[in-house]
């Protein structure tokens, strides 16, 4: 699969006058994976996406998407892509139904049942005019149009901005299902939390360059977690001193708090010698990693 990437860019560069939008981006997204494309506003995420869609043209370098060139094979390529922009802007005078019918027709028709099913899942009323919808509901229309033709590649630019937490969960489920169905997902964000539940890999872009690429699973294993344990009776701290990966140990009667670095195995076995009432290991916060990459890559050098 690695030799047949869904997206591949080589030294992709885009200058806006003298300002640099992208500075030699080398990106590789494997077919079938969910790729989180992270960076703060202005790092070049949208520039990259607009280059992939042939909305803008590179100053130099090349991009290949689904084996096709955005410029030369734009029509064939965009037929196989679903695109959602973070700020989904359309003429508000039409209803969601009208817009989706039109966009579906541009793709040669999309079954009404598919559109209805997506709308129902997101709780979207297609009969209302788009200008009468809240920002979140408007964004749902965008989600539907990106997913409705089951594209091979989903390009999502900060997709969940404006969706409430409940819908973000629905969205996460939709991305997972897309992956399960063999679709590739390329999703940009400026916050790790938006992508860490779905992405297989994250690439971090800074000043128009990719500065780090990591597997999310590895990040998870590497990252620090907070642990809280309640025992049936008070325990002594000494029982846990020296357990691999454990630090900042604090025992207060039957309650233990600590930091855990790396695998949980040694700690779990140490806990097993006591009666554990409850155990809480926090989901690692990958945001820290994202921020540390930024702080440690002040020069914007390639570290990936």
């Amino acid at each position: 699969m690695a030799d047949n990437p869904a997206i591949r860019t080589e030294r992709l560069t885009k200058m806006y006058g003298r300002a640099r939008g992208l500075a030699g981006l080398d990106l590789q997204v494997t077919t079938g994976e969910v790729y989180g494309f992270l960076g703060p506003n202005g790092a070049g995420k949208s520039t990259t996406i607009r280059l992939l869609l042939d909305l803008i043209r590179p100053t130099s370098g090349t991009a290949t998407v689904l084996g096709l060139r955005p410029r030369a094979d734009g029509l064939a390529l965009r037929r196989r892509i679903g695109y959602l922009a973070g700020d989904f802007i359309v003429d508000g005078r039409q209803t969601g139904r009208e817009l989706l019918t039109y966009l579906g027709n541009l793709r040669g028709g999309v079954p009404r049942a598919t559109v209805d099913a997506l709308a129902e899942r997101l709780g979207l009323d297609l009969g209302r005019r788009i200008r009468d919808l809240s920002k979140g509901n408007r964004q749902k229309v965008g989600v539907v149009q990106a997913f409705m033709h089951t594209p091979e590649l989903l390009i999502l630019d900060e997709p969940t901005s404006g969706l409430d937490p409940l819908l973000q969960q629905v969205f996460v489920a939709m991305v997972r299902e897309a992956k399960a169905a063999g679709q590739t997902v390329f999703m940009s964000s400026h916050v790790m939390s938006e992508v860490q539940h779905t992405a297989d890999r994250v690439g971090i872009i800074r000043d128009g360059r990719l500065v780090a690429v990591e597997r999310v699973e590895e990040l998870r294993q590497r990252s620090v977690r907070r642990v809280e344990v309640h025992f049936s009776e008070p325990v002594t701290p000494s029982a846990f001193v020296g357990v691999p990966g454990v630090s900042e140990l604090a025992v207060d009667g039957p309650t233990l708090h600590c930091r855990l670095d790396g695998p949980a195995d040694a700690l779990v076995k140490a806990l097993g010698r006591h009666t554990v009432v409850s155990l809480l290991i926090e989901e690692p916060d990958l945001e820290d990693f994202f921020l540390s990459v930024y702080q440690h890559n002040g020069g914007g050098r390639d570290a990936g």
């Binding site: 869609l53 029509l75 064939a76 037929r79 892509i81 989904f88 802007i89 359309v90 541009l106």
Partner: peptide, 14 residues
């Protein structure tokens, strides 16, 4: 300028 052209041109429409 309204920002509505992007979406259309991201479709298979030359």
């Amino acid at each position: 300028e309204a920002g509505t052209l992007d979406l259309l041109l991201a479709h298979p429409l030359s």
